[in-house]
Design a protein around this nucleic acid. Sequence first.
DNA 1: CTGGAATTTGACCACATGGTAAGAAAACGC
DNA 2: GCGTTTTCTTACCATGTGGTCAAATTCCAG
Lengths: 201, 201
Amino acid sequence: MSRPQTRIQQKNSETILEAALEVFSTHGFRGATLDQIAEVAGLSKPNLIYYFPSKEAMHQALLTRLLDTWLDPLREMDPDGEPVTEILRYVRRKLELSRDYPRESRLFANEILQGAPRMQAAIAGDLTALVAAKSAVLRHWMEAGRIARLPPEHLIFSIWALTQHYADFDVQVRAVLGEGHDPFAEAGDYLDTLFRKLLAP
Amino acid sequence: MSRPQTRIQQKNSETILEAALEVFSTHGFRGATLDQIAEVAGLSKPNLIYYFPSKEAMHQALLTRLLDTWLDPLREMDPDGEPVTEILRYVRRKLELSRDYPRESRLFANEILQGAPRMQAAIAGDLTALVAAKSAVLRHWMEAGRIARLPPEHLIFSIWALTQHYADFDVQVRAVLGEGHDPFAEAGDYLDTLFRKLLAP
DNA sequence: CTGGAATTTGACCACATGGTAAGAAAACGC
DNA sequence: GCGTTTTCTTACCATGTGGTCAAATTCCAG
């Protein structure tokens, strides 16, 4: 375990991951180069390798760190709360993640697009388990007649799809909307309306 | 203009684009290599270059070919048709594209994720114009009280996001659903329900 | 069958890439 | 201040990469 310990290690590891995120998220794993990451980080290439044993390791570190943040809002969906409130809160939180961490969103999208070669375990494990748990909650709400009866997994997919779209396809969204729009603000209102109508029993 | 003319040219150009699609769609432009494309195509690397002057040219050819197919279903949305029918038909057609051409969908996603460096013109041009035109149609329907009043551009985004999700995040979708599911069949029903509820005035 | 055109190949090149090795330079504990 | 450890750099290497080139092979019209 070579956890960062000294100040310098702490700071440089952070700088490197930040740069790696920038590069990986726009070029994918294979398209990213150490030289590019080094340049963005303002460090020499061998110095990168001093902190992370390989390009692979940087990528792995980013993905690991990402998944937790990513699943957190779903974890927080409270089985004892008011269904519509809980779901809308999840949608809002997820959209905020897209707005505030678009690079993380794209990193994730890149990885899944490529068949998730470095995330299969996490997806088959944590993620699937969490979705199963929360699907049960949703199903429970449906059976109690508190929200419309819908396939819970697909309901979750639609939350993911709709919120991530604004981060992953940002360029397209902005091109289509043109100047003078705040995509995320508009999306907030729109998705609120959408899910309210969808969930009404 | 070096349009394919002989049988051999026709066939090999096709073989190469097919292989290039396979590789580009899973590794992105920079992550794809000519050697890999050559291997998939069953041709030698110099032979690839005989048909396409560069890796860039192959990518460009794929993107150009793609965009038309991609926008076709939206073009077909009939201003004189019944609104809900027309929109649901668009959703269904778009989902069919995701199911039947997932690699094309991923190629497109990859390109947009990376900031659309090789598609900016097309996005700012054709795509934006088409969306503007169809948004006008939607708005017209809304003002006539035939469908719910919603921001038309975002309505279109949500169709794109929801349908493409099943192609682009296929790995994730299948992992979450587990065995014994047909994601696209289920999505068909789910999206039909979703948009019916959303569009009800 | 044959000559010219179309197609294909093997050898090659310059450069980029991930990563290494060894030592110089800082930083730190005392 | 000094010796040790941590950090960083320069020079380097093997391999991969996009692409070229001249020659070989195949194709096809007459």
